[in-house]
């Protein structure tokens, strides 16, 4: 077991009523990385996270957290892991602060003497200080998510597992979370961030794992993943159908049409060559832009389909 992996899984799988929700996932999350666990809704991210944290028993596979074999080491590793799984959950009739107090006290290893200070600190970090005395049921979705993050930050952590942490947050909140994730990573923590939002992952992550229908399709550093897809060309034209034929005829891949726009991976094709051919074929070109591949392009290239909800 490599000691420099914060999370390591081998053949992790989970069946629900005979259908695989997670299907032979081999994660290798380097210690100190900010790892984006990317996949559309229903691709098995939350189920994987539940297994990692010992909430679900896998149908198959082994895993270790912070170098220790799970689930045997759960009681000694989990204190170093802060987690947000499938949204926050608290007692609606208690205030945010009382909720954190109970949560902190319901388990071993947390000093009651430092509790008030640690709670105040965590609340401040997520911007909830002013609302700490309000009942949880009066919290907005974004405030609930913040309280969930605060509960993960009550003590310093070596690993943070954050399942869709910006769900329900406004743009300002999303920016704050991004900032918080960078701060945690700068302090040396490993952050395992699951998201169905491509932009979120692209902005903060050093590594990416791409989930699709329960399988881990790729696992690389973000620059590696983006460069593996290569440069792309996007054109706005009068006859996109004809243009797509020309591009495909040139040997470009992943050609797709959306409205009056056509885009595809260039591969070895030069943009100017493509332009000449389009014009030669009688297509009126209004705009032609060479682009770096985005995470979405990489995803489409990996799966051969769009970023949709799995059935």
């Amino acid at each position: 077991m490599a000691p420099d992996l914060a999370i390591e899984t081998h053949g992790l799988a989970k069946l629900f009523a005979g259908r695989p929700a997670v299907d032979g996932v081999d994660l290798a999350v380097p210690a100190g990385s900010t790892y984006g666990f990317l996949g559309p809704n229903g691709s098995g991210k939350t189920t994987t996270i539940r297994m990692l944290l010992g909430l679900l028993t896998p149908s198959a596979g082994t895993w270790s957290i912070l170098g220790r074999t799970m689930p045997e080491a759960a009681m000694s590793t989990l204190p170093h892991v802060g987690a947000l799984v499938e949204g926050p959950a608290f007692y609606p009739w208690m205030s945010g602060r009382d909720n954190l107090e109970r949560f902190d006290a319901m388990g071993p290893g947390r000093s009651p003497a430092t509790r008030p200070a640690r709670i105040a600190d965590a609340l401040a970090r997520v911007g909830l200080t002013a609302a700490a005395g309000k009942k949880y049921k009066a919290y907005s979705l974004g405030m609930r998510q913040r309280l969930g993050l605060a509960s993960a930050l009550l003590v310093p952590r070596r690993l943070l597992v954050l399942d869709e942490p910006t769900n329900g947050m406004d743009p300002q909140g999303t920016r704050e979370i991004r900032h918080l994730v960078r701060e945690l990573a700068a302090d040396g923590a490993t952050v395992f961030l699951s998201s169905h939002l491509l932009s979120e992952i692209q902005q903060v992550c050093s590594h990416v794992g791409v989930m699709h229908r329960g399988r881990l399709l790729a696992q690389q550093t973000l620059p590696e993943l983006l460069s593996s897809t290569g440069p792309r060309l996007r054109a706005e034209v009068d006859d996109p159908g004809r243009a797509a034929q020309v591009m495909a005829g040139l040997g470009m891949t992943d050609v797709s049409v959306s409205g009056t726009q056509v885009a595809g991976s260039l591969g070895e094709v030069l943009p100017e060559e493509c332009c000449r051919r389009l014009v030669g074929a009688g297509v009126a070109v209004r705009m032609l832009v060479p682009e770096h591949a985005s995470l979405e392009d990489a995803f489409v290239a990996l799966t051969g389909e769009g970023f949709d909800v799995a059935g």
């Binding site: 010992g54 204190p79 892991v81 799984v85 608290f90 949560f103 388990g107």
Partner: peptide
């Protein structure tokens, strides 16, 4: 409420 998963992760 979902608090069970957080109590188990705590770990209680």
């Amino acid at each position: 409420l979902g608090t069970l998963r957080y109590l188990l992760i705590r770990p209680a």
